[in-house]
Write a protein that binds this DNA or RNA. Structure first.
Lengths: 147, 147
DNA sequence: TTCTTTGTGGGTAGCTGTGGGGAGTTACTC
DNA sequence: GAGTAACTCCCCACAGCTACCCACAAAGAA
């Protein structure tokens, strides 16, 4: 499971060091093969390769063919398969970096099966200092969890 | 079961000594593997790893996918898996410490399946000296308990 | 008392994230 | 085809952090 947020920097060459704990998880679950793509949020989503395969299959088998085509264009169309270099970093392709306005400070946030890469400022706005109060509905949902 | 409140200090390095009684419980139930995250209250919540896994699964499998994504961002996104060091302490990651404004005096409060870490002052306000009277509804609920 | 347990503080070696040089490859221009 | 630019990926270096070790004081037990 991927969890936790990690403040990192994307260097001038567009490289991002994956945190050691994520590296371990990736090595176990997919031999460090992963896929970077976009999602509905203004960030990039990074999946273990096998997990992304499952999603691609799900899209491929949707009843609504029109929607399947649209999703293919958006999700699959920008997805890049990649792996870690010898230093445990990934190179973010310029197109993806541009799409999420990523350069310099960034936050990598675990999301169970995947992890998301946010520009530092957007992440803070939504999940960091900017998160002053949690929506009442969300708090309710939270409290339905037995914890 | 985790119960009771313990006044402790977080040292300059961000370490927190877990009370001996909690340590025993953790060793038994989850080989001292635990997860620290945020909850609806202005404190941190600490779960045995298996207990947190159950909650993560529950979120992962919610019908309402929108809500699942929101909860993942808030709960999973800040959750850090950790274990005790050889001295029985945990290192609180800076991001979590910052979120709950934790430094120096703190209170660790058992909550059956988990335990919560409060800044000393906030805890006192809510459960210590500051707790002048108990809400009538709460007293009623209390009285429905067979005791 | 003496010994043990427990919470706290600090030194230090090794790991991890970051930056930069440079070799090899590819793509493009002339 | 030759030259050049862009890019990728390797290596090395370094600073900061983590997690180990040791030490010590307070409290409780024998």
């Amino acid at each position: 499971m991927f969890s936790g947020s990690h403040q990192l920097t994307i260097d001038d060459k567009g490289r991002l060091a994956i945190p050691a704990c994520f590296r371990k998880e990736l090595a176990e679950c997919c031999a460090s093969q992963m896929v970077i793509t976009r999602g509905p949020n203004p960030c990039l989503e990074i999946y273990p390769a096998n997990e992304f395969q499952r999603i691609a299959d799900e899209i491929d088998q949707m009843e609504d063919r029109q929607m399947a085509e649209t999703l293919k264009g958006i999700v699959i169309g920008l997805a890049v398969q990649t792996e870690l270099d010898k230093q445990g970093r990934v190179l973010l392709p310029p197109l993806l970096r541009k799409h999420a306005r990523l350069n310099g400070a960034a936050v990598l946030m675990g999301q169970i099966r995947r992890f998301d890469l946010w520009p530092d400022d957007l992440w803070n706005e939504r999940y960091g200092d900017g998160l002053q109060s949690i929506d009442a509905q969300v708090v309710d949902a939270f409290r339905t969890l037995k914890r």
